[in-house]
Amino acid sequence: MWDTGTSEESLHPRTFVAAVVVLLVAVVLQVSVVARLGAPLGRPDLVLVLLAIIALIEGPMLGAVLGFAVGLVADLLSTHVIGQTALVLCLVGYLVGLVMNAAERSIVVPLAAVGAAAALGTLGHAATTSILGDAALTGGQAIVRAIAAGLYALLVTPFLFPLAAAASRRLHGDRRRV
C-alpha cells in the first residue's frame, strides 16, 4: 500500500480524511445554502464539483472511494433508495480521475472535466431517480438542469481548482517531511 514515490496509487489517510471532511461540509452547504439561493435554471452542484476537482488531483482510486462514501451519506440523508447517489458519485469520481494526467497539461482540461462531471452527474441523478422510483423531473427539465449545473461548475472551477491543488500539495508535502 505504501509504495515508494508513485504514491498516487494508494489512499493516503490524511488526504482521504481531509477530502471526506470537505465533501461532508459541501453536502450540508448544498442543501442549506446553495439550494436556497434560487439560482436561475438549476442549481450549482457543490458536491459534484468538489468531488470532480479532488478526483482530478488525486486520481481515480480516491475519486471512486470518496464518491461512494459521500454518496452513501447523501443517500441516508434523503428519502430515495439507498445506493443510487453512491453509484453515480462513485462513477463520476472514477471517470474524472482517469483524466488526471491530461489535467496537468492545460487549464482547459480541468474546466471541461469538472463541467462535464457536474452535467453528467446531474443527469445520472435524474436517471437513477426515474429508474428506481418516480421521476422527479421530466426529461427536458433534467437536461436544462444538467446544463445549468455544468455552466455553474465552469464558473466556480477557476476559483476552487487552484485552492484544492494548493491544499493537496501541502498535505502531500507535509507527509513527505514526516
Binding site: 508513485t6 498516487e8 496509487e9 488525486e58 486520481g59 481515480p60 482510486m61 471512486a64 472511494v65 461512494f68 454518496g71 452513501l72 443517500d75 433508495v81 439507498i82 445506493g83 443510487q84 453512491a86 453509484l87 462513485c90 462513477l91 472514477y94 480521475g97 482517469l98 488526471m100 494526467n101 496537468e104 428506481l132
Partner: peptide, 28 residues
C-alpha cells in the same frame, strides 16, 4: 501519476457491486 491500473479497476468494480447490492436491498 495514478491512472487506470488493475487495482483501481478492482476497487471501482467492488464499489459498484456494493452500490448495486445496497440499491437492491433497499429497493426490495
Amino acid at each position: 501519476m495514478g491512472r487506470d491500473t488493475r487495482r483501481s479497476r478492482l476497487v471501482i468494480a467492488a464499489l459498484l457491486v456494493l452500490a448495486f447490492t445496497l440499491i437492491t436491498l433497499d429497493y426490495r
